[in-house]
């Protein structure tokens, strides 16, 4: 474990908590893409099937929290507060993300076993899972500031993981190209948002995308 990965995981945890609190407190999931949240639930389910393999208390605890929180979020969006779910703007065709991710996982992986292919699928899936949410923000042309804080924390987590991979390569000579390439793609997808967040939201303005 290193500081980059720890802060990255905590940023990830913060993002998930911000989102859950936003939906629970405002009793509304307006502006939130349910499709992205379903993709995240798929990501954690397919990645943490190795939950029984004990790595550390921290590892097991975080996996359980991520799985539970992702399903709780999907439940809140599609069941409890489904009246506030914005169908009209959450229209990204997720099949164009799931299928290519799965096919790519079958073609490019470290080991052609069920667990390893599913882990690889979760890595590819996670790198594009935020697209429906970013697409929804671009369609509505704006995002509540709490939603942009969620996106900033979520985007920062994988950006910090890149620093973790650099650190691990230089100190432990350990690297995983699949995770690194997907993590770079994932972080690049946030760049446009990061720019808007830093230039606008941090100055107290609302996140308005140029229409």
């Amino acid at each position: 474990m290193n500081i980059f990965r720890l802060v990255g995981d905590l940023s990830h945890l913060l993002a998930i908590i911000i989102l859950l609190l936003k939906i629970w407190k405002t009793r509304s999931c307006a502006g939130i893409s349910g499709k992205s949240q379903i993709l995240f639930a798929i990501v954690y389910t397919s990645r943490y099937l190795d939950l029984p393999n004990f790595v550390s208390m921290y590892n097991t605890l975080m996996k359980i929290v991520f799985i539970a929180a992702s399903y709780a979020t999907v439940y809140l969006i599609y069941m409890k507060f489904k009246a506030t779910y914005d169908h009209n703007h959450d229209t990204f065709r997720v099949e164009f993300l799931v299928l290519p991710s799965f096919v790519l996982a079958l073609l490019i992986n470290h080991d052609f076993t069920v667990l390893e292919v599913l882990w690889t699928f979760s890595i590819y899936m996670e790198s594009v899972a935020i697209l429906p949410q970013l697409f929804m923000v671009s369609k509505t042309g704006e995002a509540e500031s709490i939603t942009s804080h969620y996106l900033f924390a979520l985007g920062s987590y994988r950006a910090l993981y890149i620093l973790n991979w650099i650190y691990r390569y230089t100190t432990e000579d350990h690297y995983d190209l699949i995770a690194i390439v997907a993590g770079i793609v994932q972080t690049v997808l946030y760049c446009d948002f990061f720019y808007l967040y830093i230039t606008k939201v941090l100055k107290g303005k609302k996140l308005q995308l140029p229409a």
Binding site: R47, D50, M62, H110, D111, E116, Y161, N164, D176
Partner: peptide, 10 residues
């Protein structure tokens, strides 16, 4: 037997 790559990261 290719040893199963361990994924110790979340």
């Amino acid at each position: 037997q290719v040893e199963e790559p361990d994924h110790d990261e979340l």
